[in-house]
């Protein structure tokens, strides 16, 4: 119960910070918008993209948005502020709050990106509700797997290059399942929920490992 309360307060704090200095949030939204528009300019120009390419491009955009969005979650915290949290809350609460916050952030960004993408590049999706569900699960998967990585990268010297290097290999299993599930929803044919279960399983595994490992990370 105590843990849940701590998570709740830390999440509130993150949202409040985000809302007060909207530059980061606006930056991310602009990032999504301009990437989608660059894709439009460079690929479409009179003609619909073939469905597999449309799908792959969307997931590349979402992946890089996620990495950029999550990377700052620990980088923006100054050393002093992190020390202050540790006097107030337990480390498990800090990492779970960050994961929850990143999930909600990426959920918003992912849905905005999907909307903008479908609006500008056309929407070949046959089964829109299922595709939206896949995008949402993707946000969960990216947020869970990248949050601990951003905590690790923040400790190292060249953390900006390190974040993608450490993150990509860990994200790839999730990304492969996502592309498969998204392709199924795109074609509207194979409704087997297996990739979705796989995604939830992977996310749960990663959350459990983060929960166990973060207490060792924060002491440094």
């Amino acid at each position: 119960m105590q843990l849940l309360r701590e998570i709740w307060y830390l999440m509130q704090k993150d949202f409040r910070l985000e809302w007060r200095q909207r530059s980061a949030l606006n930056g991310m939204l602009l990032y999504v918008g301009s990437t989608v528009y660059v894709c439009y300019l460079s690929f479409v120009r009179g003609g619909q993209l073939p469905a597999p390419a449309w799908n792959a491009l969307l997931w590349i955009i979402l992946l890089f948005t996620a990495i950029n969005g999550v990377a700052k979650s620990f980088l923006q915290e100054s050393r002093g502020r992190l020390l202050y949290y540790y006097t107030l809350a337990r480390p498990e609460a800090v990492i779970l709050a960050k994961i929850a916050y990143n999930t909600l952030l990426l959920l918003g960004l992912g849905l905005v990106a999907f909307g903008a993408y479908a609006l500008i590049l056309g929407n070949p999706v046959q089964d829109v509700p299922r595709f939206t569900l896949v995008v949402a699960l993707g946000a969960v998967g990216f947020a869970t797997s990248l949050t601990l990585i951003s905590g690790i990268a923040a400790k190292a010297a060249n953390s900006n290059t390190l974040m993608p290097v450490l993150g990509f290999p860990v994200v790839i299993p999730i990304l492969l399942q996502l592309i498969k599930a998204a392709k199924n929803a795109l074609d509207g044919l194979d409704a087997s929920p297996q990739p979705l279960y796989m995604l939830m399983g992977l996310s749960l595994l990663v959350v459990a490992v983060s929960y166990l490992l973060y207490p060792f990370l924060w002491r440094t």
Partner: peptide, 28 residues
């Protein structure tokens, strides 16, 4: 990751954390 952290104890602890995390992600 190991080569980008200078402090020895910090390098040992952080890379241990990443090693476990990455192994758990690689098994599936």
């Amino acid at each position: 990751l190991r080569s980008s952290i200078v402090d020895e104890q910090q390098r040992a602890r952080i890379s241990a954390v990443y090693n476990i995390f990455a192994f758990c992600a690689a098994i599936p």
